[in-house]
Design a protein around this nucleic acid. Structure first.
Lengths: 340, 340
DNA sequence: TATAAATTCGAAAACGTTTTCGTATTTAAT
DNA sequence: ATTAAATACGAAAACGTTTTCGAATTTATA
């Protein structure tokens, strides 16, 4: 409401020109130490707060980064956000946060909102329903620094941060096989997602290497609806050719699996072993405790922010070159994959 | 980077004055329908995007709401955020999100950052370490619309949204007693917090009503350190005068309790019954499943945003009067409080 | 001592909008 | 036909910064 004192008033109080005061506050070499001190102390006394919009308008930058995630109630994305915020706060950047709720239309609207330069850069993970990427291409063409993480968009030539999806999935599947599984199922959110493609490849390769033939029906394409997923999994578990192991490519599908199992007579891990990509803090408190592939979420967020801020502060030297940077996950073995 | 076409260029293309174009786009009555159509179609053709900072500077508002929470990896706060974002998106508002990590110093820095008018309003839940509220008073004095939720600041005369903390806690404690508990402990994050005060009152009153004398040692003041909390709780459970029931005033302390119990020979619910304020989606998947008091998080978020936006769009008619609005929680009884 | 260079500051433009004020044209009223 | 009012638009100011350009004073150089 009341915006306090502005630069002109501060200058008048000091009997100086606004330009001088501005330079003094920005520690310009053109201003003597004596006046700098006077200006700064008066600014503190009057509690001067520069208007961010005037500054943004003039400098054509907002010190703001937009973050777009598909889900907020999600340990992985929440941790990434914390990582981004860590670095951003350190450098005086603000965070505009948007949740697409896994909805492409919402994603498009949000991306279009960012076309006007409200944020200096965008870091995002695409929704599971995103196949048409014209909105992202438009954003990229606009020249706005753009970084993807986790669920990346391969066709946009910029830097992406992911975990070792293929390798982790391969190792996870291998672990299931080593624990005695013969029929391993793979649970995915959407075939479009970069992570499902890579993780599915790792899953398939591990099967083939073990001489197991991948059953098409065991690659289960789930939806966004929790209850639907549970029923889908339950049906698979009730079929006469049911899997004895499950690799969930995202956390929520592991939880859906646990719920589905509760609707059967099956026991984990005796009848069904479960491993999942998950950043749950309490995987050890589930019954049975869940074997997880944990992504380095905070690090991923930090690296995204670091790179972006480097690009923003030294635009000449740094370009977001078209590359995929991989930070490995960590497998934690718990009861859900215990051999008998 | 490239900001596209601006108002002046758009006006030149149309051979009109910038003022006319501005008015046409803002659907002013001073402009004829004919020119409005011309302007709008040309604006779409050239993909004109108004500069948000120029607009903010001129209008002295940013269509941005700042949200300050103490923790991001927290089901309750994540749900509240989703609720806020729902309403905000509907009305074209953007969300600046800040996480204090339960740290007062961080909270102060963030609040000071908002003093310059970057956001049109603030909705927040204070950190557990906040006792000195001078920074909040300054923010309030600044005239910025300010709303608290959950962890409120009673001394700031504005509108606050909470759940029925006292009543829920009272009922939760009563439930434990009804299930046979004679010695109920209360776990809190910090004595300063509004929610702990209210929830503790409810706890005490339920004990007194049942003729049970509150044991001071059973009101356990925990810290922010997960491991410390677990040990604190474990020690309490190992004492020769251990509680047989626990009411956790926040979710993370219930989880700490579960971890602590795993380090003892005790069983839930046979030796210890547990109930907790919690918005976990998977309370039913814990072993044993956790009896919860679930706050109407999404609704709280939505109501905060609704009220704030009403205040922002019709500033004259709406004031954030000094009142506490209560939206009741819901108790879901599960295995962790089952009587033998 | 005269001149060049360094130091320190001010005036004004610029960023891209919205809005106040003014004005020309058209329509209505007498 | 004359005047009043309504309609439709333009010129310019304003929002609060930063920065370009210029100028005055002081210091260094010859």
């Amino acid at each position: 409401m009341n915006n306090g004192v502005n630069l002109k008033e501060l200058a008048a109080e000091l009997k100086l020109a606004p330009s001088t005061v501005s330079r003094a506050l920005n520690d310009s070499w053109e201003i003597s130490e004596a006046t700098k001190k006077k200006v700064i102390s008066m600014a503190e006394k009057l509690n001067y707060q520069p208007n961010p919009f005037a500054r943004s308008l003039r400098e054509n930058k907002s010190k703001t980064i937009a973050v777009i995630i598909p889900e907020r109630i999600n340990n992985f994305f929440a941790q990434v956000m914390d990582g981004i915020e860590n670095i951003a706060q350190e450098h005086g950047y603000h965070l505009l946060v948007y949740n697409t709720h896994e909805d492409v239309d919402r994603e498009k609207k949000i991306v279009n909102l960012l076309l006007n330069g409200r944020a200096d850069a965008v870091v995002m993970s695409v929704s599971s329903q995103t196949s048409d990427i014209s909105h992202l291409e438009k954003l990229y063409a606009r020249g706005l620094p753009l970084i993807f993480f986790d669920r990346i968009c391969t066709d946009i030539p910029t830097t992406k941060f992911i975990t070792n999806d293929y390798e982790s999935s391969y190792q996870g599947t291998k672990h299931l096989i080593q624990q005695g599984c013969k029929k391993v199922a793979f649970l995915m959110l959407s075939k479009e997602l970069s992570i499902t493609k890579e993780r599915h490849r790792g899953y398939l390769d591990a099967l083939l290497e073990a001489g197991l033939s991948p059953e098409p029906a065991f690659s289960l394409n789930c939806s966004m609806c929790e209850e639907q997923n549970i029923e889908l999994i339950r049906e698979m578990l009730w079929s006469n050719n049911r899997p004895d192991g499950i690799l969930a490519s995202v956390e929520k599908l592991a939880l859906a699996t646990y719920q589905a199992v509760k609707r059967t007579k099956l026991r984990i891990p005796q009848d069904l072993k479960v491993i999942s990509f998950s950043n749950m803090g309490i995987a050890g408190l589930l019954e049975p405790s869940l074997t997880t592939i944990t992504q380095p979420a905070i690090t991923i967020g930090q690296e995204c922010a670091k790179l972006l801020i480097k690009k923003l502060t030294k635009p000449k030297q740094n370009d977001l070159i078209d590359q995929v940077i991989t930070i490995p996950s960590k497998i934690t073995i718990r009861s859900s994959t215990l051999a008998e």
